[in-house]
């Protein structure tokens, strides 16, 4: 439409810049004052991260819309829920969950950032829960310092490493740490960093990420399990895998060996899509169609998470259950 005009008028901006550009020449300070209201995240049982100064909807405050705005969705952000439960059989919860989300509104235009982690520990004598907890914390700390902080300071550092590389090296660090400190523990790890509408995923083991859209539910991680491998090689039918005696045998996990191969992938998240991270305590007992049904039926991700965990418990709750659910905004 007005592409031509845009080409010649330097001050014209793209739609998502309209807000800041059109209220010029208002002083920047004043703008900040009206917008920097931080609102703590609504009741989410984030186990690991309750630092309210970091989890913040900086742009959540109501204020008059700029006169010329054509965008109605600029205040829409990712929302998330997180739920974890020991289940009906186990005596301790060896799963670890971590959620962190930050959004800001200012002239610098940093994209929203989120980091979500599920780790499912294994090993006796509390080694499993130690391994999953350590992994979640190490990965979170590493990614914060190698990805999030540079993003905030806006360093255009030539040597900054690609994001999936930063994620992968964070997982390597966690692996080395577990081998050194918790030799009898192991853990799965499935994590995603969300920057804007891109999901950067790292994955080891059999925790999963599902991408849920109006078209259905798609598992975007690949289990590192014996039965999954047999299925991929056409040596086992998926229905045989569901009750296979060795369905819990993993061939890859953190804490297993110094050299760890880590799956990494990048996915663009469609508007209005939903991302579900979960441990096998959920997907072993809740069918994908039921996950889809619950996620689609709830507008509040926390409610949906709680329902998913409740259904897993209804279906036996044979293992620890963890679910983190992200709702991607419509724009």
């Amino acid at each position: 439409m007005d592409l031509f005009r845009r080409l010649f008028t330097q001050s014209q901006a793209k739609p998502d810049e309209l807000i800041s550009k059109t209220i010029e020449p208002e002083p920047f300070e004043e703008q900040k004052a009206t917008e920097a209201t931080t609102v703590p995240i609504p009741a989410v049982n984030a186990v690991e991260e309750k630092d309210e100064s970091e989890i913040a909807y900086a742009d959540g405050a109501t204020r008059p819309l700029p006169p010329e705005t054509v965008i109605t969705t600029s205040n829409m952000h990712l929302t998330f829920g997180q739920s974890t439960d020991v289940g009906m059989v186990r005596s301790n919860n060896q799963d670890a969950a971590f959620s962190f989300f930050s959004t800001s509104r200012n002239a610098d235009q940093r994209p929203d950032f989120g980091l979500f982690i599920v780790a499912d520990g294994m090993g006796g004598h509390h080694d499993g829960e130690k391994a999953s907890a350590a992994t979640a914390h190490i990965v979170a700390a590493q990614v914060t310092s190698s990805v999030y902080l540079p993003m905030l300071t806006g360093e255009n550092d030539a040597d900054r490493i690609p994001i999936t590389e930063a994620l992968v090296s964070a997982v390597q660090k966690a692996n080395a740490d577990i081998i050194a400190r918790i030799p009898d523990g192991g853990t799965t790890l499935t994590a995603t960093a969300i920057i804007g509408d891109l999901a950067y995923v790292v994955h080891v083991g059999d925790s999963r990420i599902y991408l849920i859209t109006k078209d259905g539910i798609e598992q975007i991680t690949r289990d590192h399990s014996l039965v999954q491998r047999l299925i991929e090689l056409d040596q086992l039918k998926p229905e045989e895998a569901a009750h296979h005696p060795q369905r819990n045998v993993l061939y890859r996990a953190l804490g297993q060996s110094e050299s760890l191969e880590i799956d990494a992938l990048t996915r663009r998240l469609p508007p209005n899509s939903r991302l579900l991270l979960c441990s096998d305590g959920l997907w072993n007992v809740v069918e994908e169609k039921d996950m889809l049904g619950i996620v689609i039926a709830h507008d509040d991700p926390q409610e949906a998470c709680d329902k998913l965990v409740a259904l897993a418990n209804t279906n036996g709750g044979t293992d620890n259950i963890t679910a983190i659910l992200l709702y991607i905004p419509s724009s």
């Binding site: 040596q235 086992l236 296979h244 061939y251 297993q256 096998d280």
Partner: peptide, 16 residues
């Protein structure tokens, strides 16, 4: 219980 590591030498049909 979930465990890590497979036999490594077993033929696929042995798992069926």
């Amino acid at each position: 219980h979930t465990m890590i590591g497979t036999e490594g030498y077993c033929a696929p049909e042995q798992y069926k």
